[in-house]
Structure formats: C-alpha cells, structure tokens
Design a protein around this nucleic acid. Structure first.
Lengths: 235, 235
DNA sequence: TGTATATATTTGTATATACAATTGATTGCC
DNA sequence: GGCAATCAATTGTATATACAAATATATACA
C-alpha cells in the first residue's frame, strides 16, 4: 500500500528537513533549481514547483538573478485566530443562546463616528446583545452598524441569527481589524455579564469592511475568568 | 513606462475580481483550466499557475475530476500576531530596556511542572524580567525553562539579550502555543509593573517547542492601559 | 433493479524547451 | 582608478505535450 509520493514533494521534504535540522540556516542560499533538478533527476520545472510552494508558505524567499534563500525566522511569533462566538461555542458542542437588550437607530457621537468612519450625527444602528455558553454569559456584543449600507439591520430578528452571521452573509468580508485589550468593567457590563466589579474583562474591538466600505464596529467584552483566546501553531 | 503584467496574473485578477464582485459565489465552480486557457489564449499550464496561486492563498479549492471552486468564506475570523516584545518596541522606533529581577535554578512545583511537561521536583530555570518601552514598564516576563535542554540558560546575561532572543537562536522554533486572557494583579505584579490594584492586565501564556521538545513556558503580563494586541488583515 | 464497465471531464504530475529579466562579476577602455 | 559594456548565473514567464488519477455520468449486462 506504499503510496508513491510526487517527485516535487520529495524535494519539498528535502528542503524542509534541511531547514528544520539547521543544515540550511536563515538567509542562507539553498540549492538552485538546476542543482535540485540534477540531484533529484527531475526537470527544472519540477524543482521549481517544489520551491514555489515553499515560497508561498513563507519558508523560502527568492531573488531573481541571485538565488533562493531560507526566509528569516519570524522570531517567536504566532497567530491567534479570533472567531465568531456562536461558531466557537458550537464547535465546543456547547449550547449558544443570546439575549437582545437593545436594537435602535442612533445618531453617532464623535467617538463612535470616528470608529465607524462617519461624521458626528450621521445615522447608525446600535445593538447590544449578551451571548451565553450553556447559559453562562460569555460575551457582551456592543455593535454599531453603518445605517446607509445596511438599512435592513434594524428590522432583523437577532434572536434567530447573530448580527455577525447576518452581516457576513450580506456583506462578504474583505477586511477585519481586531484590537484586544484588558479592561475593567462598569456597572452595566457587570450586570449584563453577571460578574462583580473586581473581574477584569477581555475586550476585542472588531471592525469589518466589505468591498472597501466600513460596515460595522463591535466591542466584544468577555469576563476574564470565563474566556481566553488560544492558539497552537505548529511548524 | 506601462509595465506588462504576466499573463497568469491577468487570470488571477480576473478570478479575484469575479469573486469579489460576487460573480463567482462561494462553493460555486469557476472556469476550468482549459476554459481559462482558451478565453485568455494561453496554455493550460499558465492558467494552472494562476489557479494554483489562488489555491495557495485559500481563495479557491480544487477537486480532481470535479473542478475548481470558490473557497468557503472564513466567517468573521482573522488572525492576531503575537510577537517578541523587544522587536515590537524596536519596530515602533521606541527604546527597549529591561531589568532582570530574578534568575535562579528551581525544582518545579506540580503546576509549573505540568506546564513544562516535567515531573514535580525536576530542575528548571526561572527568570523574572520587566521590559520597558521608553522607560515605562510594559511587560512582566515570568519564564520557566527546561534545565535539561538548555543548561546554559542560567549563565546568560539577560541584560544584553532577552531570553526570547537567546532561546530562539539556540532552539529553532517549531511550535508555539499562546493563551491570552484578562487577569487581575497581585502586589508583586503591581510593584514591578508600577500599576495600581484596580488595573486589569493582559496575560499571554506562551509555550514554545523546538523539534518536538517543550523548551520553555512564559507568562507575559501587560498593564491593560498600556498594551493591546492588534491586527488588520485584508482579504 | 442493481451492478459492473466504459467514457468524458477535469485536475495532478512531469518533461523539455525557450526566451526574458535581474543581479553580480568580469572585462576592456579611457 | 573609474566607468561602461559584456557575460554568466539564476529566477521568471510561457508553451506544448503526455500520461496518471479522480470523479460523475452513461452504458451494458445479469
């Protein structure tokens, strides 16, 4: 049952192993396409394919006329994925529920307007929703939406579908900004999330764009004791 | 000076535009390699190259025998990069400084041992460093290192080089785990970071592996008012 | 009816080739 | 020495071709 692996993959493995084992060091040149082609007895295009895939992965960098080099190490960095809360809870096979506390048309103040890319006094929609995981409050979603772009937002039933789901269906996501910080809480947050004043909160500020237009900005506030962002990214 | 763009790139743009403008919807099939080759009057391999790059970017998915399809939208998710603090400060053209408060050999307790993958009582090194940006405390680095793997750790001069830099040079990073949460602070944290008791903190738990071995685990604690994680990922 | 079998379509892999573009090194000239 | 032209090495782009592998559909058969 030994499956034959494609020849270009053998070359990929060779290069990856060489990098992993520090035989090829960062910024150092790896064998040229021709050298690999000869060593593995393949055509230059096959060696090219192996290299191109590693370039796409950010493992190698190439300079025309110079050669192919091991990409610099990205120090000790990794990527944290921030996800939709309902999907996240669903993936844990837990029960997601939500309460709509507010859904209203407003005129934005200077601060919110700035965040939404609107002038003060322009119309927006505001929603305030508490998301629960197995009945426990886990996220307070405080969202503003550009009313000119999403006029139907105010007439949605957000007990059926989360704002996040509604927006991503209608406005294909082209760009997202996230800012994560630790904050304290005011009495409204404490009441809605059922926490006491001493509990720090994790706040994710999320702004979403679709086709170049700023659609929405949301403050997603989580009780520090009940929510963490985690990631494990292997190499 | 109008630069000629490669033909395969024209095909990429065509497909990307079609997806952006919702002419090609998620899960829907896009033209086959042959169809694209005929429409753009190029060889099949050139169309293939355009498609392969979009597959590498996660924009398209392919199934042999079936066709090429627009990848599902990745809901409202994005990736946050967590970086080395010294590099981060350097990139902002600010001044990084650090104070070593502790560097000692210890026998791990049950909790730390569990996190480091060691049995209780086994040897580890412990370091405690405050990192400052332009003189202001911005990170408390509380790190444990597997002594069996990095026996030289204890004899390093961490005023010259951060533990992060030392470790990443000697142990090429193969895997990183991050857990981000909001926490309160105890009196030691308050004193070292020069904050008061009411200030919430952002804690990043980082564990690093090299060639399958767990090298180190660190608690990186930041004052909530002085530090945030941010990302803006375009599509 | 249900089950093999063949067939058409499409992507996957691989080759051999050609010429362009970029870069660094060398050479020749003043 | 300084400068321009040339050259060699290497990657970038593109073609035409071939056969393999996977999939869905159509066909033949029991």
């Amino acid at each position: 049952m030994a499956k034959v692996i494609p020849r270009y993959k053998a070359i990929k493995v060779y290069l990856e192993e060489g990098i992993r084992s520090r035989q090829f060091l960062p910024d150092q040149q790896v064998p040229t396409e021709m050298a690999l082609a000869e060593r593995f007895e393949v055509s230059r295009m096959t060696a090219n394919k192996a290299i191109q895939e590693l370039v796409a992965d950010g493992v190698l960098v190439r300079h025309q006329g110079l050669g192919t080099f091991v990409a610099e190490v990205r120090a000790q960095s990794s990527l944290l994925e921030i996800r939709n809360i309902a999907d996240e809870i669903g993936d844990r096979h837990h029960v997601h529920s939500s309460e709509l506390h507010r859904l209203e048309a407003v005129e934005v103040d200077a601060t919110t307007g700035f965040r939404l890319g609107l002038k003060e006094g322009m119309p927006a929609f505001h929603s305030l929703i508490v998301h629960r995981e197995n009945g426990v409050p886990i996220q307070l979603e405080d969202r503003y939406v550009n009313a000119a772009i999403a006029p139907d937002y105010i007439s949605q039933d957000f007990n059926r579908q989360t704002p996040s789901q509604y927006l991503s269906e209608r406005f294909p996501l082209s760009e997202v900004e996230h800012i994560v910080e630790a904050i304290g809480s005011d009495s409204q947050i404490q009441q809605l999330l059922e926490i006491d004043a001493s509990e720090p909160c994790l706040q994710v500020n999320r702004r979403t764009w679709s086709q170049g237009r700023l659609i929405s900005c949301a403050r997603l506030i989580h009780p520090g004791s009940r929510y963490r962002l985690s990631s494990r990214s292997g190499g």
